[in-house]
């Protein structure tokens, strides 16, 4: 769906932030992880068309992104910014959510329906008249997510979606990601919460100092502890516990862990 070849990028023309990135992104939900400053946000800004590659090529659905402007790609790729204050600018929550759909020329009735559906999904349907700047950080982030969902794009990219979210907010975001996957959309995220990655994403790409250090299925990547350490990443808590408990297979969720541990102990005790 997205193909990146020989991508290089520098902000100042001297030090490279991204260096020779070659990735094919398929339909699998994909998490991009790595240490602060590894180039993750820069990479997704290039995919979104907000930054132009220094050199190399990015194609989306077979088309070179350089051939269209960021505005023209807006109906295909939606992106939730890391800092909500960089994204929101309207006077009410509803206006903010409607801005994207109307801007990509969606019909007003459909835009409103999409906006209300998206606000319900993030739990802000009762705050349509609120000023976005009066919301707390968690709700601002959820509003940004709703604004992108309402655009109904083929690709949805999140930059740190879990910032400031409590348990309920996390569950809401997990459900949104599951629903997007069911709808056949490509979901990508940049994130530091490895428990969230383990639960929601099928593929993990590890960035380190502007390069791809590791790329593979989530269970594979989280067993590569030495490589992860180089990228300042620790495996999810449940994976660490599985390793400590001597489980033979990688468990990415609590349910998987409980099942695998019981199987292991039954085997050890000779109980069927």
């Amino acid at each position: 769906m997205i193909s990146v070849s020989r991508l290089h990028f520098s902000y100042d023309g001297k030090s490279e932030v991204l260096s020779d990135i070659n990735i094919d992104i398929d339909q699998r939900s994909t998490a991009i992880i790595g240490q602060n400053g590894a180039g993750k946000t820069t990479f997704i800004k290039i995919l979104k068309g907000l930054l132009k590659p220094g050199s190399g090529k990015v194609t989306i659905l077979g088309e070179d992104t350089a051939k269209r402007s960021a505005a023209q790609w807006a109906g295909v790729i939606g992106m939730v910014f890391q800092n909500p204050n960089d994204q929101i600018f309207k006077k009410t929550v509803l206006e903010e959510t409607l801005f994207g759909p109307l801007n990509i020329k969606m019909m007003p009735k459909a835009a409103r329906e999409n906006a209300m559906e998206a606000l319900s999904a993030v739990g802000l349907a009762d705050k349509t008249d609120s000023n976005p700047y009066d919301l707390n950080l968690s709700d601002k982030k959820l509003l940004c997510i709703a604004s992108v969902l309402a655009m109904n794009t083929r690709v949805v990219i999140f930059d740190e979606p879990t910032i400031a979210q409590d348990w309920q907010g996390m569950e809401r975001i997990k459900n949104i990601i599951k629903a997007l996957k069911v709808q056949g959309k490509l979901v990508m995220t940049v994130v530091h919460d490895m428990d969230f990655v383990a639960e929601c994403f099928e593929r993990v790409i590890v960035f380190n100092e502007g390069k791809v250090l590791l790329d593979g299925s989530t269970d594979y990547v989280f067993t590569q502890t030495d490589i992860l350490r180089r990228a300042c990443v620790s495996p999810p808590h449940i994976v660490q516990l599985g390793a400590l408990a001597g489980l033979r297979r990688v468990c990415l969720t609590e349910d998987e862990f409980v099942l695998a541990y019981r199987e292991k102990r039954c085997e050890e005790l000779g109980v069927s």
Binding site: Q35, N36, H192, R229, C232, V233, S234
Partner: peptide, 11 residues
């Protein structure tokens, strides 16, 4: 929330 935007090792 001192580490909400930090990588795991940084956190």
């Amino acid at each position: 929330e001192p580490t909400s935007q930090l990588d795991p090792q940084g956190s």
